[in-house]
Each structure stands twice: as C-alpha cells, then as structure tokens.
Computed example of a mutant assay.
Amino acid sequence: MPALFFALLSEAKPWIQKTKVTPLSHSGKFRIYRNESTSIIISGTGKMAMALAVSEFVSLLSKDERNQTKVWNLGIAGAKETLGKIGDFFWVHKIKDYATDKDFYPERIVSSSFPKETSLTTFDKPIAKQQNENRFQVLTKEEWESVSLVDMEGSGFFEAASLYFPLENIAIGKQISDYLEGTFCKEDQVKQMMESILDPLYEEWMTPLPWVKEDPFETQIWPELCNQLNSLRLTETMRHDLKKSLRFFHLRFPTSPIPSPQWETIPKIQSKLDLKIFLDDWKVKLHV
C-alpha cells in the first residue's frame, strides 16, 4: 500500500479526489485518508509536525506492511530563479536541515517521467530574498548561493521515515511554487499546480515496489472477505483491526485456510455491541 505525505490540504486535494480516499476515524492528531489500496496523510507545516505524522501513521502498520509500503512526500517548494520554471517538478537526492546542519540522502529515482533532480534545504521558517512585512527569514549571500529548493518539512519527513521504512521505499518530490519573493501561495494556485503533475506521478506512485511479490492475502483473501462482510458496515477502525488479525493468522499459517466467523449470526446483529462481539469472537480464532 503506497502512502503520500503532504504538509498542506491544498497540496493533497487533487490526490484525495483522484484516489477517493476517505478520512480515517482514529484517536490520532493528524488527518489520515485511506481506501483499500492507498493512504494520504496531511501533517500541517513544519518538520516536527511532519515527523510526528509519519510516526502516527507507522503505528497503524505491521512490520510486514512497513516493508512493503512506498512512502512519498510531495508538495510545493520555493526555489532560486536559476533552477527552473514555476511548476517544474524535481526529485530530491539530498536534503540539508538548516537548523542542525545534518545532511540526508534519499535513494535516487531510477525511472520517472520527471527526470530532474536537485537538493532541498529545510528551514524552520519561511524564506525570502529580502526582508518584508511578512518577516520571512532572510539568507546571507553565502547561504543563498548554497540553496536550490527550499521547504519546511523535507528533513523531518525523511529522518522519521528512515527509522521505520527501508530507504529504497522513501522518496521526496517538490514542485517549484515561487522564487522566494516573501509571499504565500494561494490555495487555488497550489491545487492547480499539483493537478498539473498528478496523472503521470499517480501511475508511478501506484506501481508496486519491484521487490514486493504479489500478495495473495491482498489480491484474493481480503477482497473476498470484504465482499462477505459488506453488509456489516464496518467502521474504518474495525476494518483495519480485523485486517491486521487476519493477516496475522495468514502470515503464521500461510497454507491453512483462515478460520471462518459465525456467519449464521450476522442476521442477528442489530447494534455496534453485537458487531463488536461478532468481531471479537472471530479474532479469538485468529490469534490461537
């Protein structure tokens, strides 16, 4: 299951509409949207918020799921005029955290319809070429010469994601939104820019990782069970917890049939309590 991390809702909107993901009802602090095949997470601005969002999302996954999850951070970024045009998209092969002076090196994208690569510097404040009423951080001449793309989340995303996911599963891509004039982009502008790169990136994002083999649980077992359980109207949390239990049994006993629940009791389910009892009884069989 691929996962996309965005700082802003305006960046994520085209992807939410494309994938038809819905909000996950959970006890966490961040907005997580999911369907049966994808996840989209919105962190809010700042590297700390992004790192926490990554950690919260990871708590929903098993170790096996983490190894098979492609995780990307996409969004807008400021840039020097010499780098490219507004709307140009770049993969990031180096990240510098300005505050800590740490460098991070994401794996290079081997094949993409967007071939450009560059470095990214993550700052704790918005950056501008010169001081203005918005009080953006202004760089020295030496600092200005060393930057390429500029954002506020990249280092937080990569440092957190690399703790939980294989490095080859992680990628960061940024689209030039401005030339650091000291103004904020409007939501509609951001949405339009992200829409312009969505279709080709979507195909690449949905392409399975080359080292992940077809999973019969995902392609056969789980879809068949979902069809049988369709009338129960499970919440996203119930669905997620049940799927984890089913996968747990399948991983332990890959050649054994998954124990069936008490299908005959389904017509008698009238309340959430009845549904919970039905699921709990089934999980007992799955965790033998």
Rank of each mutant, 00 (worst) to 15 (best):
L4F: 04
F5W: 05
F5S: 05
L8G: 01
L9P: 13
K13Q: 14
I16C: 04
K20T: 09
P23E: 03
S25K: 13
S25L: 13
H26W: 15
K29W: 07
F30W: 08
I32A: 01
Y33L: 14
Y33N: 08
R34L: 09
N35D: 14
T38Q: 14
G46Q: 07
M48G: 12
M48D: 13
A51M: 04
A53N: 02
V54R: 03
E56L: 01
V58T: 03
K63W: 09
D64P: 03
E65A: 10
N67K: 14
N67V: 06
V71F: 08
N73L: 15
L74I: 07
I76Q: 09
G78C: 10
A79T: 04
K80T: 13
K80S: 10
L83V: 09
K85L: 06
K85R: 10
G87T: 02
G87W: 03
D88C: 02
F89T: 06
F90G: 08
F90V: 04
W91Y: 01
H93G: 12
K94Y: 02
K94V: 03
K96D: 03
Y98C: 10
D101R: 10
K102P: 05
K102E: 14
E107T: 11
R108P: 09
V110R: 15
S112C: 03
P115N: 08
E117Q: 13
E117M: 10
T122R: 00
K125P: 00
P126S: 06
Q130E: 15
Q137A: 14
V138N: 00
L139A: 06
E143V: 02
E143T: 03
W144K: 04
S146T: 10
S146P: 02
S148Q: 15
L149K: 00
G156N: 00
G156A: 04
A160I: 05
A160H: 03
F165K: 02
N169D: 01
N169P: 00
I172S: 02
I172Y: 07
Q175I: 05
G182C: 02
T183F: 08
C185R: 07
D188P: 04
Q189H: 13
V190L: 10
K191L: 12
K191V: 07
Q192S: 08
M194F: 06
E195C: 05
S196V: 07
L201E: 01
E204N: 04
T207C: 10
T207H: 09
E214Y: 01
T219M: 14
T219H: 11
P223A: 02
E224F: 11
E224V: 07
L225S: 01
L232P: 06
R233T: 07
R233K: 11
L234G: 00
T235M: 00
E236Y: 11
E236T: 12
T237F: 15
T237G: 12
L242Y: 03
F248V: 06
F248A: 11
H250R: 10
L251F: 08
L251N: 11
R252K: 15
P254D: 07
T255C: 11
S260N: 11
Q262C: 08
E264G: 07
T265S: 15
K272N: 14
K276Y: 12
L279K: 04
W282H: 07
V284T: 12
